[in-house]
């Protein structure tokens, strides 16, 4: 029974995302499984399980490193683990210009180039939670942010 509940817990919560806890990446240990309670009239049983897990929740004001996944004239997208971060062109230093004629397209100044695959340090300025995913808006206009 315990094994079944644990397996059920792993398949049900791992990989999900909620606004309250962020992404639940991995259940580490199950701490406590309550006695089951059969629900009247439907015959299903309910258990309360306490567990410890690795979660990932982005916060406003946090600085993170990410990998650029796509670049277009409006800005670029970066991935921080499972999280998508969008950096608008308004939040990219103004001396970095979008260049659509190179392949892959990139934002660049004399020294640095932001293109697909670059690693970038981003400050999160806002997050939006919907039922199954989180999106974040980032900026690299801050000191010490930008390409790594």
């Amino acid at each position: 029974m315990d094994d079944f509940l644990k397996r059920k817990l792993h398949t049900d919560v791992e990989g999900t995302c909620t606004g309250r806890f962020g992404y639940i990446i991995n259940v580490l240990t199950v701490k406590e499984i309550s006695k089951g309670k059969v629900l009247p009239s439907i015959g299903l049983a309910e258990f309360t399980v306490k567990y410890q897990a690795i979660v990932f929740k982005p916060f406003k004001g946090e600085v993170v490193d990410g990998t650029v996944t796509s670049v277009n004239k409006m800005g670029f997208f970066a991935e921080v683990g499972p999280l998508q971060v969008f950096v608008s062109s308004h939040l990219i230093p103004s001396d970095m210009k979008f260049n659509p004629y190179v392949n892959p397209p990139a934002f660049s100044d004399e020294n640095n180039t932001i293109e697909k695959g670059s690693n970038c340090r981003i400050k999160i300025v806002g997050t939006r939670f919907d039922a199954t995913d989180i999106f974040a808006i980032g900026t690299i206009k801050e000191d010490f942010c930008g390409i790594l």
Binding site: E14, G15, C17, Y23, I25, N26, F56, D65, T67, E79, V80, G81, P82, N119
Partner: peptide, 14 residues
Amino acid sequence: TSNFQKTQAYVNTF
């Protein structure tokens, strides 16, 4: 899960 794999790739990179 894909989130697990993305996270693993991420932590290994950084």
